[in-house]
Amino acid sequence: MKLEGRAKMLRIHFGEDDQWQGQPLYRAIVEKCRALDLAGATVFRGIEGYGASTLIRRPHHLSFSHDAPVMVSVIDAEEKIQKLIPCLDEMVAEGLIAISDVEVIKYVHQDGARS
């Protein structure tokens, strides 16, 4: 896969507890990105935040309940990103999706270097 020059970065913000068809939404989004053959996707967990619902999301200490804010960042050519948007429309019931311009400096991998 090649990726160079002008590209788009899509970021999706939502909660770690959000679900899609019985699995965590962030996992479902990463799988969708892979199914659409996007160049890559990374999920980050925030430590605190609030969003459209103005409900403060904060991971609870000493418990297994989370609902921390989560962000998925996806970088690819604009056409590929546009293909992902209709799927996200359906999957993300509550959250924020933003697109920005990026310039790709390097996108490399070593074939078979990692098992």
Partner: peptide, 9 residues
């Protein structure tokens, strides 16, 4: 540090 993701490989 991310919690999940995939990339070029």
């Amino acid at each position: 540090q991310g919690i999940l993701g995939y990339g070029a490989n």
